[in-house]
Design a protein around this nucleic acid. Sequence first.
DNA 1: CCTTGACTTTGAGTGCGCTCCAAGATGTAC
DNA 2: GTACATCTTGGAGCGCACTCAAAGTCAAGG
Lengths: 128, 128
Amino acid sequence: MTAHTLRYYERVGLIQPVGRASNGHRRYSKADEAWLNFLHCMRATSMPICEMQRYAELREQGDATSLERRKILEDHQAAIAAQIEELQSAHALLTHKITNYMKIERRIRVDHPVLSETDVDCTLASAS
Amino acid sequence: MTAHTLRYYERVGLIQPVGRASNGHRRYSKADEAWLNFLHCMRATSMPICEMQRYAELREQGDATSLERRKILEDHQAAIAAQIEELQSAHALLTHKITNYMKIERRIRVDHPVLSETDVDCTLASAS
DNA sequence: CCTTGACTTTGAGTGCGCTCCAAGATGTAC
DNA sequence: GTACATCTTGGAGCGCACTCAAAGTCAAGG
């Protein structure tokens, strides 16, 4: 998370105006860090900024908004579960395509041998 | 995938100029569909357009580019695996936070009871 | 004293991936 | 015949999430 991003998040209300040192520089408390870490985690899993803003707003209103906030988290958790499924199926597809490419490569090596096995041994031997 | 997106993909070279009906309208073959489906799958897992362009370019050059293409897929597969991990840890974090919210809500209900259990029964009974 | 460098601000700029607009051609329904 | 929908094109516009530029302040080091 860059300094630019931190300032941006403060600007759009994702974090409350943060404490300053005597020279005016920002000083992040442990609580700030924890909150930023949570924000980072949500962003990394594709929660849009506007939803994070909504959540931050509710959070500032205290416990009374618990239900609403929980709803947001549950929705996002469901989105995450869906993402995981999509990623897993893509992962499987890639495994399949990659083994296919390996077959193609083997065929090419058989049809157009550039280095025989002894050539390879030779190369290795001279390299050492 | 919208018509807009299909045209966009053709424009930026992700798909070869596709066949046309006599009236000039695009007609997608089964092969086109399969390729588009693959593209969709890669986009859905955050492969950037430029990398898909690179892959498409290699693909048009035939089997000789197999190794390079496989590298792209392997890299993307690794990226997917990393994404899955990140999503899983976020999922776990959310589970934790959600149960926390449920605790808060229970405390609120105990402190400020609006409906007693009999009230609830009453409501249900009159609704049926 | 003067440079260096890390911070401050406001506001503008960037890159990505679409997404839409305007104008025009064609096909379908009434 | 005449609406209306659906496609065509090139080019412009948009939303998101940063990311940077310019100008200024301040503290430490040489």
